[in-house]
Write a protein that binds this DNA or RNA. Structure first.
Length: 227
DNA sequence: TCATTAATGTGTT
DNA sequence: AACACATTAATGA
């Protein structure tokens, strides 16, 4: 089954674990829940922890010097995030916020290292996923630096369509409950501008929008990006 | 149902 | 892009 939650390189470590191993992991790691909106991690947190996201959605974001937020990644079930000396999913200065109620495992970096040693396939997968994340980050950087808001939004919609898309007749529905504001945070723009650009795109027939729902014509958007 | 909050739409600077 | 404000949908007491 294709992975629906693959935005900015999902690292699904659970996929590499069999049920017994998962059970063992559950037993030795504190499980915690947090409600929607909670900041799970922020720069300067004393305890280096690796989190495994068991259920829910989390966004990683950074704050620019002038106080604006830039979303760096959306994570779904099975993702990992955190900062330690030996491993980092961000580049320092990264916040993590729950976008839904979430269920997490907290691992110390020691636990995490032991886990990787006991299961080499995990390390391999981690390297692959992090390489992919790096590649996507470079691509994102280029688009953010060079593109118009329209270009950036189209780029984002394509990516979201590929990651969260569900076929919906002529359209692909982006199944991620994103608000215009959240979209703006992902492309370094503002809520109003995203709203306006989306209605522009809608008038061109490239997208259809409803509150917290967007459907896109993926292939036509890809054409637009190419040209 | 009513009141409040969240999301979106739009015009002005 | 920032701001103000209007409209509409969702939430929840």
């Amino acid at each position: 089954m294709p992975d629906k939650l693959d935005y900015l390189a999902r690292i699904n470590l659970f996929r590499e674990l069999n049920p017994e191993e998962l059970r063992r992991l559950d037993q030795r790691t504190p499980m915690l829940t947090a409600r929607k909106g909670t900041i799970l991690m922020q720069p300067g947190d004393a305890t280096p922890v690796i989190y495994l996201l068991k259920k829910g959605r989390v966004r990683l974001f950074r704050v620019t010097p002038d106080g604006k937020e830039l979303t760096v990644a959306l994570l779904g079930d099975g993702n990992i995030f955190g900062e330690t000396d030996s491993f980092s999913t961000g580049s320092g200065g990264t916040y993590a916020q729950a976008l839904s109620d979430v269920l997490l495992c907290a691992l110390t970096s020691q636990d995490f290292q032991e886990l990787l040693l006991s299961k080499p396939a995990l390390s391999l997968r981690l390297v692959q996923a992090m390489s992919e994340r790096l590649r996507e980050t470079e691509e994102l950087l280029e688009t953010l630096a060079l593109g118009s808001v329209r270009q950036r939004l189209l780029y984002l919609l394509r990516k979201l369509g590929l990651a969260f898309g569900v076929a919906h007749g002529e359209y692909v529905r982006i199944d991620a409950d994103l608000t215009h504001e959240e979209l703006a945070h992902m492309i370094g723009s503002t809520r109003e501008t995203v709203t306006a650009q989306l209605s522009q795109l809608a008038s061109e027939g490239l997208v259809q929008t409803e509150r917290k729902q967007i459907r896109i014509r993926l292939s036509e958007i890809e054409e637009q990006i190419g040209s």
